[in-house]
Design a protein around this nucleic acid. Sequence first.
DNA 1: AAACCAAGTTTCATATAATGAGACGCGGTT
DNA 2: AACCGCGTCTCATTATATGAAACTTGGTTT
Lengths: 267, 267
Amino acid sequence: MVAATRDGTVGKALSVLDQVAAFGRPVRFTELLAQSPFPKPTLYRFVQTLTNQQMLSYDPDRQTYAPGIRLVRLAHAAWEQSTLAPVARPHIDALSKAVGETVHLAQLDHAQVLYVDKRNAGKPVQMYSQAGKVGPAYCTGVGKVMLAFSDPAIVDLVIEQQSFHAFTPHTLTSAAALREELADIRAQGYGFDREEHEPGIICVAMPILSEAGRVLGALSVTSTTGRTNLAGLEAYVPILQDTARNIAIDAQNWSFPDHDTKETTGI
Amino acid sequence: MVAATRDGTVGKALSVLDQVAAFGRPVRFTELLAQSPFPKPTLYRFVQTLTNQQMLSYDPDRQTYAPGIRLVRLAHAAWEQSTLAPVARPHIDALSKAVGETVHLAQLDHAQVLYVDKRNAGKPVQMYSQAGKVGPAYCTGVGKVMLAFSDPAIVDLVIEQQSFHAFTPHTLTSAAALREELADIRAQGYGFDREEHEPGIICVAMPILSEAGRVLGALSVTSTTGRTNLAGLEAYVPILQDTARNIAIDAQNWSFPDHDTKETTGI
DNA sequence: AAACCAAGTTTCATATAATGAGACGCGGTT
DNA sequence: AACCGCGTCTCATTATATGAAACTTGGTTT
């Protein structure tokens, strides 16, 4: 996660937030305490404060804490302002329609892949339950592609703090294998997920690069070995390239033109 | 917002987060300073800390701050654990299919309505851009319905800190009018939005109440005056009632049964 | 070029708030 | 009745946050 100390009280309190979120379920005070670096009263006060602040929610019946509702509000703003999603939206819609497969838009967040948007092939999907999800960088198409074009220093850092887990027989499980793969990706400009994260799931991924060559994010088209193969996915490379370039251009020119998108949702 | 002081340094820092989010666009340091209660160096350090912590993101080119990507990660956890959305999902899907109109699921967050999930009538929709959105409580169907069944003390508080704005000619613009409406809703068990927030937009809303009578959230079916009228919407009351009751029951029994929902997304 | 200005950054003595060992209250066992 | 685990509170100590003022930087005006 983020550097816990160094950022004083605020940093410590936020680390508690992460801790609660990491549980993935409502959690009791004692459970937190057991794996907390903070002494009991300190942790207690953090939890109190965060609950006051609606960053945590408290269930009095079960005596449990969970990430709070204020985060949902804040994340809405974050998603609209700090991710590629709003600019990329029309392009992803078009791409999804064109290829008829699941499309992902991801960004790099520390050593992890953060999925910021998604279009499902057939039916509408509850996006929010997907966006915000994180995954490992070393065994996903989007992750590898983003790393391949990242600053070497960042790659070193990611590899260093990465514990390679073999999700499938195809997962790359060593720093050396990964570095080799990254070189290949850099050479050819795009990458694949060859059932490295889940059996039967393959994808082709394309980086979204700024004019200056900085990694903004990545796109991928996902399918299953039942429906197609890598050669089949490779056919999508041109349209992925176009889409990625267009997103990059729009991102460059994007300057939040004063809310000209008037709401008409009828909420 | 939340009580800024009282929660020490952490509370103050979080208030800065809110402030940034409220801008709705990337914002410069000076802009923040102009409307901040904190002196320059204090605000500066908060912004620094929050940026370090990825709660804010900084654009060095434009020298602007925006809500950070860490919020998206955290919100994912919050949405899954602290909202009705995961339990309600199947019920809302069914409801949406049955009525063929836009369906909203909302919860009360302070004095505001927080939309936690949504199904669009015809075409798939980018949910995330809607969930997390907040609206006023006094002039939306879901807001009034939730207030109507809330603790009187809460209602007083909400009304007190509410500045009534007339969005349309039909908006209730006085505490008295609102209280009267709330009494009616309580008597009849559900409520309407009679073009009170946006012209042409109407909805019927139903509270989701726990066995003990506590307000868990609210559902609504939204339409336009072009397609139907209040009497037409009233026909949905029985199915809304059923759906709300079923959601309440599921929410009661919901106890996070240890990740039996294995992922098969193929990300 | 020199003077100016505004936005951003750093310093440092002071005030304030965070800290955590310990103690307390309380419901549920044994 | 004694015990125990869990959550809560107290308070002297210490560390941290604070903010007036000074400094830097990059751009604009005279």
